[in-house]
Design a binder for these strands. Structure first.
Ligand SMILES: [Zn+2]
Ligand SMILES: [Zn+2]
Ligand SMILES: [Zn+2]
Ligand SMILES: [Zn+2]
Lengths: 138, 138
DNA sequence: CTTGAATTGTTATCTTATAACATGAATTAT
DNA sequence: ATAATTCATGTTATAAGATAACAATTCAAG
């Protein structure tokens, strides 16, 4: 085959594209069952089809799971997909639901500083800062 | 009444004490249903009794929810209860299940630095760093 | 082809969490 | 004191999230 492995990895399957589009269209993170409902007419018939597709996209660093919401959102950065990053940091507005991803570069140093006294090798970091966003503070 | 409000707040109800003891006895975080099973003979008959008690203890800053595990653990610090802190940071070993809480003082500055460009007022921060602990690295 | 591995589909089930309503205790008003 | 209101707790039912187990399909060697 002619395609490089990396190139092939970037070509998403039909199902992966459908989930990406559904998440991208939504302004808010979606639960797996909301995604399922949105894609009932597109070949998704059971939760597992959604969960498997989400797992694939998460492994690619294109989707993240919001742990404190049990919900999923498209990655807002370039750096995650390019490094297949499983780690992501978010601010989440409790009033309007806004979710914004924090740049990777800011987070890395911070994590290692947090761990200075903790002989601990991190593999996956989840930072979720909940509060009130700029426009909801008025 | 003679007791100050603060004093009263520190006196836990029977149910709160039972949940605290159950969590403290366990070396690992527990799910709500595990707590329920452990306390079936002590008056807990439905999930909601556990969830309501957990909510109260979380509000007091004595228990934290581990978002990435859907599980609950006793606070390991003094600072959380004294300030009713809802925010907590943990390292979680993926090999042995060890959970260790990171000191509040280290985290606060870090969060505000993360938010320097993000006109965002944080109310509750969850940091969960997964990886491999010291003893599991051998 | 045939076989075995990997992926996908399907059903059933498990875990986690909350809604809705009932009951009971405590506080306040008449 | 008793009725009315409020607040906490109990109970049942159900929603929402996730996975186990197995069947069907695809696809690449041999
Ligand atoms: Zn990302
Ligand atoms: Zn907002
Ligand atoms: Zn704590
Ligand atoms: Zn360990």
């Amino acid at each position: 085959m002619i395609k490089t492995q990396k190139h092939a990895a970037l070509e998403l399957t039909e199902k992966q594209n459908l989930v990406m589009e559904t998440l991208a269209k939504s302004k808010r993170p979606l639960g797996a069952y909301s995604i399922l409902d949105a894609l009932r007419d597109d070949g998704f018939k059971a939760p597992l089809q959604v969960y498997r597709t989400l797992d694939q996209l998460i492994t690619l660093g294109m989707v993240h799971r919001l742990e404190s919401l049990n919900a999923y959102t498209v990655c807002q950065l370039d750096s995650c997909a390019s490094r297949n990053s499983q780690s992501a940091s978010f601010v989440i507005c409790e009033m309007c639901g806004l979710v914004e991803e924090l740049a990777h570069s800011n987070v890395e140093g911070i994590v290692s500083r947090l761990l200075t006294n903790f002989d601990f090798r991190p593999t996956k970091t989840a930072i979720e800062i909940r509060g009130v966003c700029a426009s909801c503070q008025s």
